[in-house]
């Protein structure tokens, strides 16, 4: 069907966890690696190729499909692979196995203010952030007045961003991302910061985006927002897709499960 926006099948992602050993730092240094090379090679030979680093599976066999124009909310406790899923879908990191097919241009808003540099002015940061998110310079120039109007920082365009209040900062960052105009929008908990007015503005913008027929995948911890904005929800727990369906039903199951101390998968 040509109405599919995202098709995910058996997506899995693992990380190798290095444990701190014997007072050595957790990060790797060339010096340590070179010196430890003979020891490691000997160990590898002895154990017949088995390495003892621990593997942590952030996503396990996740499969779902999102049609064009759908707004899907992803809920789950912290650390259950929601951000990892979005990172894979926006090609920042690669899956370990499985795959996904994307039909359309993707705009990812995983963090507010990516690319902002405190020393540059608001105007320069708009261009910087816009270019980072994938907009061409002419596109940014065309939408410049709208972006500034959405953020409401007319007077402060030429002051360095380090002087902005948090609210202004977050409004500007979201304003740039909101005017991205992608066919698929991936949003990751960016409403956690900002006051109510800002959250209203963001929700309104996302509702406009979805009304225009764009696909939105939205991670949130706020159940009211998910139930208001997303007709469909996906519940991820410990990297696995537990539930996928109308958001009211999924939220109900999630809230039920939250009351119990242990979740049976």
């Amino acid at each position: 069907m040509s109405d599919v926006a995202i098709a995910v099948k058996n997506l899995s992602k693992s990380f190798k966890i290095a444990h701190q050993r014997d007072g050595l730092p957790g990060y790797r240094t060339l010096r340590d690696d070179l010196i430890g090379l003979p020891q490691r090679m000997l160990a590898r030979w002895k154990r017949n190729g088995q390495l003892t680093s621990e593997t942590f599976w952030a996503l396990k066999d996740v499969s779902f499909e999102v049609k064009k124009g759908e707004v899907v909310g992803i809920i789950g406790r912290n650390g259950t692979g929601k951000s990892t899923l979005l990172k894979i879908l926006s090609r920042i990191t690669e899956p370990t196995s499985g795959g996904a097919d994307i039909y359309g241009r993707v705009g990812a808003l995983l963090e507010v203010g990516t690319g902002f540099h405190p020393e540059l002015t608001g105007r320069e940061n708009i261009f910087m952030n816009g270019a980072i998110l994938g907009m061409k310079r002419v596109e940014i120039r065309r939408k410049f007045t709208e972006i500034v109007a959405f953020a409401g920082i007319d007077k402060f365009l030429d002051t360095p961003v380090k002087r902005y209040s948090t609210g202004m900062y977050v409004r500007l960052a979201f304003a740039v991302a909101a005017h991205l105009d992608p066919e698929i929008l991936l949003v990751d908990e960016v409403l956690a910061v900002g006051d109510t007015e800002f959250q209203q503005k963001c929700l309104g913008k996302m509702r406009d985006v979805s009304a225009a027929g764009r696909t939105v995948i939205f991670i949130s911890h706020s159940m009211e927002v998910v139930s208001r904005l997303c007709p469909r929800a996906i519940w991820l727990h410990e990297g696995q897709l537990i539930s996928d369906g109308p958001s009211d039903a999924v939220i109900a199951k999630y809230s039920d499960a939250g009351d119990r101390s242990a979740i049976q998968t």
């Binding site: 069907m1 040509s2 599919v4 098709a7 995910v8 099948k9 499909e65 894979i88 879908l89 090609r91 690669e94 899956p95 370990t96 196995s97 499985g98 795959g99 996904a100 097919d101 994307i102 039909y103 359309g104 241009r105 993707v106």
Partner: peptide
């Protein structure tokens, strides 16, 4: 592509390891 019915339309990109 993952979805066999989607053969008419090519994905913008395929994410694979």
């Amino acid at each position: 592509p993952i979805r066999t019915q989607a053969r008419q339309q090519k994905p913008t990109f395929r994410i694979r390891p």
